[in-house]
Design a protein around this nucleic acid. Structure first.
Length: 546
DNA sequence: CAGTAG
DNA sequence: AGGCCTTACTG
DNA sequence: GCCT
């Protein structure tokens, strides 16, 4: 019939997206073009439509600050506008949370000047490294637990470094096009031998061109909450830990410094307890609850023990109850497993972050060694390395083979060889699954390795994927965990289940029966195809530090 | 099976 | 009141 | 811990 269906939208907007029904007008003054483009794209993809002028249908106006707002629209026309006038931070907050946040804190008014006020101070705080609790931290990526140590003063500086590099990489992103998949020999995104000079320079640029950047005005609060995240995690209370983790994400996005409780009353993830805590921190500067934790010998000891690879909350508590108080004590404990003993022996080694250039060196070694055993094999270092970080807590190596079958049995030979050349030093876990039956099995090895010529132990994971589900493995092990979670939730909302082994139609029986492994994943060759299928905007690996 | 890891 | 991640190995 |  009527060919009215003009479906020419390249990026299919999702009518059920979180911005559905919104008609937005964007004040472009003071917005970095790239950032603007990203926002436009996301708005449209999540159901909003963008107007080029402030027409009647417009429901939302976004601006960087009140100056830009006035400059573009003018007081009169503005006073006639009945919709919401918000800071772009609302967008940021909603995107990072995956759902619309309350508009109240982001409302931009000319009278109160709240927006312009906070905007002023943006310049001062500039591009302060956004402290990444859990998520943006790269200790590990994936859909893992919340494991970080924001309180560790020793790692503080490296965090800053990480973010710095990200900004630098951001600049040269366009040039790096292929991030993907089945292309042997040539490594993906590693190329960023940024010099210190280049770094500082880039930072300065971004300082002036990103006047909004990460606010981080409530660092006092997020810092304390971050410590609670780790503490509860160490105690085995993952749920509670996660709550603080989510609260941090919300608070970090706020464009103002919290002073009275009304500003925080209706924020998502902030309930009664959080409000009380914020109240106490704002008025006293500290949180007695945390102080208590930090002086409690039991909590401190259990936390420490839990940092040993292989020791979790339960074991840590047992060890404490046995009377152990220091890591030295544990060395004489014979109930420890092999892996735990190794974790203990190389405790400091494993905690030592690996400079990017060393990871690069090892990745090349790994690629070369792999090809000697199996030509055409694809070896990519994922994790925080692939996301462009300046240093990495460990290495996540994702492997496949383009012919779809010769990956089988590869890992055994590979590991043996890597041991022969003294690259791999100690084993933690070795699980072979591909050699068995019909499984779309992933072979996995966890162990310790050393950089050539050195003795310092690093954690390394080797994972071999069948070609057909390789893209999923690559996505999952590149992370970060926030991105993975969003992908997973998006898939879920569209009736699928996503994990590192594939994308499956959501059959309810998927959880019921065990033997029914026959459910096969949808096939995608590249990461981008997966993103596209899910209707998720494409993120280059270095853009996945959410 | 509990505990742990990613 | 009950969900908030899933899956596989170690011992 | 928060949220439905």
């Amino acid at each position: 019939m009527a060919p009215k269906a003009t479906k020419k939208r390249s990026a299919p907007s999702d009518p059920d997206g979180m911005f559905a029904g919104m008609d937005v007008f964007l004040v472009e003054i003071g917005v970095q073009p790239r950032r603007l483009q990203i926002w436009k794209q996301k708005l449209e993809q999540m159901g909003a439509s963008i107007e080029d002028r402030l027409s009647k249908k417009v429901t939302h106006v976004f601006a960087m600050n009140s100056e830009a707002l006035l400059q573009q629209i003018g007081r009169q026309r503005l006073s006639r506008f009945k919709g919401s006038v918000l800071l772009y931070q609302w967008l940021e907050g909603s995107l990072s949370l995956g759902e619309k946040v309350s508009e109240a804190p982001y409302i931009l008014t000319l009278e109160s000047g709240e927006g312009s006020l906070s905007n002023k101070s943006f310049k001062e705080c500039g591009s302060k490294a956004s402290n990444g609790y859990g998520s943006s931290d790269d200790e590990t990526s994936h859909h893992k637990k919340i494991r970080t140590s924001p309180e560790d003063p020793k790692t503080a500086s490296t965090k800053d470094m990480d973010d710095t590099v990200n900004i630098a990489v951001y600049e040269e992103r366009k040039t790096v096009s292929s991030s993907d998949d089945l292309s042997p020999t040539h490594s993906p995104v590693n190329s960023s031998p940024t010099t210190p000079d280049a770094l500082t320079k880039t930072v300065e640029i971004s300082d002036s061109s990103l006047p909004y950047s990460p606010p981080d005005q409530n660092h006092n609060i997020t810092e304390i909450f971050g410590k609670l995240v780790n503490t509860y995690r160490a105690l085995g209370d993952d749920r509670r830990s996660f709550s603080y983790y989510k609260a941090i994400a919300v608070i970090e996005k706020l464009p103002f410094k919290i002073e009275n409780m009304d500003q925080v009353k209706h924020l998502p993830a902030i309930g009664k307890s959080m409000q009380d805590h914020i109240q106490e921190i704002v008025s006293t500067g500290k949180l007695s609850k945390l102080e208590h934790f930090e002086t409690d010998e039991k909590v401190r000891t259990v936390s420490l023990f839990g940092e040993v690879w292989g020791i979790g909350p339960a074991t840590a508590l047992k060890l404490y109850d046995k009377g152990h108080r220091t890591l030295d004590d544990l060395k004489n404990e014979d109930s420890l497993t092999n892996a735990q003993r190794l974790g203990l022996k190389y405790f400091d080694d494993i905690k030592t972050r690996i400079p990017r250039h060393e990871v690069q060196e090892m990745e090349q070694l790994l690629q070369k060694a792999a090809e000697e055993i199996l030509p055409e094999v694809v070896v990519i270092c994922g994790g925080s390395y692939r996301r462009g970080k300046a240093s990495c807590g460990d290495m996540d190596i994702v492997i496949t083979h383009p012919d779809g079958k010769s990956h089988i049995g590869f890992l055994r030979k590979y590991v043996k060889h890597l041991k022969d050349i003294k690259f791999l030093r100690e084993d933690l876990i070795f699980s072979i699954h591909s050699e068995e039956d019909t499984d779309a099995g992933v072979d996995t090895y966890f162990g310790l390795c050393t950089c050539p010529g050195r003795e310092l132990r690093h954690r390394i994971d080797l994972k071999v994927y069948p070609r057909d589900i390789y893209a999923f493995g690559l996505i999952a092990w590149t992370g970060n965990d926030v991105l993975n979670r969003r992908l997973r939730l998006l898939a879920e909302s569209k009736g699928y289940r996503l994990d590192d082994t594939g994308l499956f139609p959501a059959t309810q029986s998927s959880s019921s029966k065990r033997g029914t492994r026959a459910i096969t994943s949808l096939r995608f060759k590249t990461e981008r195809e997966v993103f596209d299928f899910l209707g998720f905007p494409w993120f280059e690996p270095h853009e996945r530090n959410l």
